[in-house]
Write a protein that binds this DNA or RNA. Structure first.
Lengths: 136, 136
DNA sequence: TATATGGTTCCAGTGACTGGAAGGTCAAGG
DNA sequence: CCTTGACCTTCCAGTCACTGGAACCATATA
């Protein structure tokens, strides 16, 4: 399989596959005589693994750790779970922040008439509002 | 006020103030005779405005738009509200994505024993799981 | 005078790609 | 045989919003 076909079956763009290789997330692909990268079974599985982990928001660095664990027969499920739990906690933290922002914005827009006149509580809040962050 | 003092009262780091100037988000600061940047009332208010808008997740580009609206006496509150509503919708979209990710991860970790043995449903899912994204 | 603490500029790095230029390779059609 | 188009290659630059650091200048104090 050339890189284009690999991209198609894994959902990882060709450019991104080359990028992953360049940063060492995946080993250098074997090359055909013409210099084209060549992908087979395990390469494809690895790219799919990466794609699924990335879609769940793991950083590329964490995906590297997950890949190492995946390939390590002596791993403990506890080590994998720890990584996942840490990630869940990060995701939840981010959700809380966004929800807090959301509530503040909704409060502000509710108070803005959204008409032809210049008066706007949103701008007023930005101009004179408290220095505290969004309400938690 | 020198840049350090301005940074302290606005909460925007000195480096970031210089950066905002370099990208044109704020006009070039006036300079003292020694070349130091000098900030007064309106500059400080502007930086505080920027800081509050940024904390609510507006992009620097959007903050530029908000600043322009703020300084435009003929603005309509509708134009401000439109920007805010668009941002709320983006935030909500991101929250949904993260929540979907969160639920998938929790499902996975619940099924992982997290013990000394290698068997782990999390890795199995990444290795053989569906190519669909996190469950919505 | 030495030091500490400001300020200045400019360059480089972050994360995770993505776009684009310039060029090599290959299969099919005229 | 030549061209066209679709693929592949490398490398450089840009994205976003900063942040770190080097090298240097200015000011106040012990």
């Amino acid at each position: 399989m050339n890189i284009g076909a690999a991209a198609e079956v894994t959902g990882v763009p060709a450019k991104t596959i080359r990028y992953y290789e360049s940063i060492g997330l995946i080993p250098p692909a074997t090359r055909a005589e013409n210099g084209y990268r060549h992908y087979t079974g395990i390469d494809i599985d690895t790219l799919k693994f990466i794609q699924r982990a990335r879609r769940l928001g793991f950083s590329v660095k964490d995906v590297g750790g997950l890949l190492a664990l995946w390939q390590d027969q002596d791993r403990t499920s506890a080590s994998v779970k720890a990584l996942a739990l840490k990630h869940i906690s990060d995701v939840e933290q981010r959700i809380h922040e966004l929800d807090s922002i959301r509530r503040t914005l909704i409060d502000l827009t509710d108070r803005c008439h959204g008409n032809d006149r210049p008066h706007c509580p949103i701008l007023e809040e930005f101009a004179q509002g408290s220095d505290k962050g969004p309400k938690d």
